[in-house]
Amino acid sequence: MGISARTYQRWNRGEGLSEDLRLHNTAPVHNQLSEAIKQEIITVINKPEYSALTPHQIVPRLLDLGCYLASESTFYRVMKAHNHRSA
């Protein structure tokens, strides 16, 4: 079957046959960006001096100015969520 002996034993005892609780987890996400930060990222990438740049270029320029909003990957995720095209 392609499962471990331990999994088979648990299934035979009835463990793990209940509803998959991972799909119904209601715990809050503590590291989720606030809407204010997301909006600030969108505002920055729409500024004329940054509009033709990628997050790979924007984040270091902001750091040179002493401003850190989020990582490059977070910039990309926010842009994707807002259907914003990178240069």
Rank of each mutant, 00 (worst) to 15 (best):
T7R: 12
P28W: 01
Q57L: 07
L21G: 09
H24C: 02
R6G: 07
V59D: 01
R13M: 11
S73W: 02
E49C: 03
T7A: 13
E15M: 12
G16R: 11
R13W: 10
E40Q: 14
H24V: 05
A27F: 12
P55T: 03
G16Y: 13
P28M: 08
Y8Q: 13
A70E: 01
D64T: 12
H84C: 03
P28T: 09
A70K: 04
K47T: 02
N46S: 06
L17G: 10
S34L: 12
I41P: 01
N83I: 00
S73T: 09
Q57A: 12
A27M: 13
Q9T: 10
A36S: 13
L65R: 15
L65W: 00
Q32L: 13
E40F: 00
A87P: 15
I58H: 01
T74V: 11
P55L: 06
A70H: 03
D20G: 04
K38Q: 15
H56P: 00
L23I: 03
L62V: 06
H84N: 02
S51R: 14
R10Q: 10
K80Q: 14
P60Q: 12
H82I: 00
G16S: 07
L33R: 10
T43S: 09
R13N: 08
V44S: 00
I3Y: 13
N25Y: 04
G16K: 09
N12M: 14
L53S: 05
D20H: 12
A5C: 08
P55S: 08
T54I: 04
H30K: 12
I37D: 05
A70Q: 06
S34F: 11
I37N: 05
E15L: 14
L53D: 01
L23Y: 10
E35C: 03
G14C: 12
C67Y: 05
A5M: 10
I3L: 14
V29K: 15
C67F: 05
Q9D: 12
K47W: 00
S18R: 11
L69R: 02
